[in-house]
């Protein structure tokens, strides 16, 4: 069984950052999301984040909002998520789920963890659950052997970074900018500073996301982070077809391999 630490260790052994690609389950359809996620795995994503389309995505910009709406109007149900995760596992990929917390609460935190683990999922990234409110999730993730990826932000205090790192396992998610998801032209200047602050508190791998869309940006982030997270750009690529998804993954995979020394 692969674990998240193995994913990052394997990338590090090649002196590079890991490439982490995001796509919502059920986008544009359940079958379509399986196909595109397989392409992302085959074209160089070391890890995929499978998103759970939610009615009120407060951390997401217009691209992912629209994708979530499309998935839901195409009939996405939460049980489809586990099916999509299992398809990634079957394709030889590694998957974590990224989800707002209410659907997990409604499903039952323990039941969600159980079914995700059974589908081969490695953990959950929780954009609107901070460790302060995560008692049930701590217990369920321990019980089912899942990793917990909490977020840190440029506004996080040292105390909160310390506390959040201690509550996390697998990797930490550093939000590169203060803002919502969406491709941006320039890598935030706040990202390197944040990663440097976080490293004072933990040896966990650090993934950086929010705003990455090109191999060149991926290379820049790979210069100081352990993982490069790309979301909205994959969602946009889906509209152009699977070849575009593969091309983007390949470009980004090239990027994480040309980062300026992934060892910080």
């Amino acid at each position: 069984m692969s674990t998240l630490s193995d994913v990052f260790a394997a990338a590090k052994a090649e002196s590079r950052a890991a490439l982490i690609g995001y796509l919502p389950a059920g986008f544009p359809t359940v079958a379509g999301s399986k196909d595109h996620l397989r392409s992302m795995v085959e074209s160089g994503c070391d890890l995929v984040e499978v998103g759970l389309p939610f009615s009120d995505p407060v951390m997401d910009g217009p691209t992912i909002q629209a994708a979530a709406e499309q998935a839901r109007s195409a009939g996405f149900r939460v049980r489809d998520l586990f099916d999509v995760v299992a398809s990634v596992t079957a394709a030889g990929g590694r998957a974590v789920v990224m989800t707002y917390w209410n659907p997990v609460l409604r499903y039952g935190v323990d039941a969600f963890a159980r079914d995700l683990a059974a589908a081969g999922g490695l953990g959950i990234i929780t954009p609107d659950l901070v460790p302060d409110e995560a008692e049930d999730w701590m217990a369920a993730s321990e019980a089912h052997g899942l990793d917990r990826t909490f977020l840190v932000a440029p506004s996080s205090t040292e105390d909160r970074i310390e506390m959040t790192a201690r509550a996390s396992s697998g990797f930490l998610y550093a939000t590169a900018v203060m803002g919502v998801t969406g491709a941006r032209d320039v890598v935030s200047s706040a990202a390197p500073a944040l990663v440097a602050r976080v490293r004072e508190h933990t040896t966990l791998p650090i993934g950086v996301g929010l705003g990455v869309r090109s191999g060149a940006q991926a290379a820049e982030i790979a210069g100081f982070a352990d993982g490069v997270i790309v979301g909205s750009a994959f969602v946009s690529a889906v509209a152009e077809g699977d070849a575009a998804v593969r091309a983007l993954a390949a470009d980004l995979a090239q990027g994480v391999r040309s980062g300026v020394a992934a060892t910080v």
Binding site: V130, E133, L151, A153, S155, S156, R160, T164, T175
Partner: peptide, 9 residues
Amino acid sequence: RFVPEALIA
């Protein structure tokens, strides 16, 4: 508080 970490401060 069920909000993104970015808002906690």
